[in-house]
Amino acid sequence: MRSRNGNHYFSHRLCSIILLYSLSLSASEYLISYRYVVKDASLYNESLMISHAMKKCSGTSYEPLQLESNGSKNLSKIISLNYEIFIDYIHKLGLDVQHNEETINAQNKSTTILTLKTKCFKVDFNDNFARIAPLK
């Protein structure tokens, strides 16, 4: 018969295994959103939001992008190093365009907002590359 301490350690190990397993499942999934505002033909505001997915995303990946990671596993850092490539990639995926223009007594004002609605991305980290693919 096992001791009380032994049983306690067993349940502790089991819980930690389950926790690590669940973390490993969602660790490579990120939620990314992007938005920028252009006012009167000039860039006014730009924001890129990156966060870990708190729960597992469903869907299959498509149109992947490979970025140089140089051994890093920090997605924000990898994206900041390859910012222009990633922004071009986001544009290709599709952005919502919202444009409003107002002309009062022949004086024109315009606002254009381009948005990537929060999307789940699957990220695989290799030694030198990070493979990013949205889930559909």
Binding site: L95, D96, H99, N100, E102, I104, A106
Partner: peptide, 11 residues
Amino acid sequence: STIRTSVQAMI
């Protein structure tokens, strides 16, 4: 005189 225009799409 006011003219308002708006566009909404996904590209």
